[in-house]
Simulated scan of single mutants.
Amino acid sequence: MNERHDSLDALILRRLQHDGRSTAEDIGAEIGLSGAAVSRRISRLRKAGIIAKEVAILNPKSVGLPLTFVVGVELERERRDVIDEFRARMRADEIVQQCYYVTGSFDFVIVLHARDMSDYEAFTSRTMFENPNIRRFTTMVVMDRVKVGLTVPLLQWLSEETPE
């Protein structure tokens, strides 16, 4: 969509990124708009696809998934069908939390959570070792989740002048 967004939209989005349960009334009181105006803006932001999804973010350790792995994957061939098949496998595998098609030494970088090393080994068996299109993969075990988030910086909108 080609709508114009302003710093008030950015303030709403910033608040929702940090607390998705914020009410329109609470946000409005914070930024100087009515709850109804905030609701209209949120609806517009959803329709524009700027708000892509609203979810609860869980602590993986608290639900029995204490291990986090970052895996770099190099494909045997970079053909469209091979890439698309790998993408589909990653989307379908519940253990995979994030998957990025990247440039550089690897073709894909994957982030996943597992109960234990056996859980991870089962993942590598079904997705890596049994796939003839995988040339190699490298696994890094996360020692400390220093920063984890899905918030998007909104500096470009916050620096714009607020409409009157």
Rank of each mutant, 00 (worst) to 15 (best):
M1V: 08
M1G: 11
N2Y: 14
N2E: 15
N2W: 13
E3G: 06
R4M: 07
R4G: 06
H5Y: 11
D6R: 00
L11K: 07
R14F: 08
R14H: 13
R14T: 12
Q17I: 04
G20K: 09
R21M: 15
S22G: 07
S22D: 05
S22M: 13
T23M: 04
T23K: 12
A24E: 03
E25C: 07
E25S: 10
D26Y: 03
D26F: 06
A29E: 15
G32L: 01
S34T: 15
A36W: 06
A37N: 04
A37V: 00
R40E: 11
I42D: 05
S43T: 10
S43E: 12
R44H: 02
R46F: 12
K47D: 11
K47R: 10
I51C: 14
I51E: 09
I51R: 14
I51G: 01
A52Y: 07
K53C: 10
E54I: 14
N59K: 12
P60N: 01
P60W: 01
K61P: 05
S62I: 04
P66F: 00
L67T: 01
L67Y: 00
L67G: 00
F69H: 13
V70G: 01
V71T: 12
G72A: 12
G72L: 09
G72D: 11
V73C: 05
E74V: 12
E76C: 09
E76G: 08
R77S: 09
R77N: 13
R77M: 13
V82R: 15
D84P: 07
R87V: 15
R89W: 14
R89T: 11
M90K: 05
A92R: 07
D93L: 14
D93V: 04
D93I: 11
D93R: 14
I95P: 03
I95C: 06
Q98T: 05
C99L: 04
Y100L: 10
V102F: 03
T103A: 09
G104P: 01
F106P: 00
F106R: 04
F106N: 09
F106W: 02
V109T: 03
I110C: 02
V111C: 04
V111N: 04
V111R: 03
V111Q: 09
A114N: 01
A114V: 00
R115H: 12
R115P: 10
R115A: 02
M117D: 05
S118W: 00
Y120I: 00
Y120N: 01
A122F: 03
F123R: 00
F123L: 05
T124D: 07
R126L: 06
M128P: 01
F129N: 06
N131V: 10
N131K: 01
N133T: 14
N133P: 12
N133C: 14
N133E: 15
I134M: 13
I134S: 13
I134V: 14
I134E: 10
R135F: 14
R135C: 12
F137S: 10
M140T: 03
V142H: 15
V142F: 02
V142P: 15
M143V: 13
M143F: 11
D144F: 04
R145I: 03
V148Y: 04
T151W: 11
T151C: 11
V152K: 02
P153Y: 06
L154D: 12
W157S: 08
W157Q: 08
L158I: 13
S159T: 13
S159H: 11
E160P: 08
E161S: 15
E161K: 15
T162C: 05
T162I: 04
P163M: 09
P163I: 06
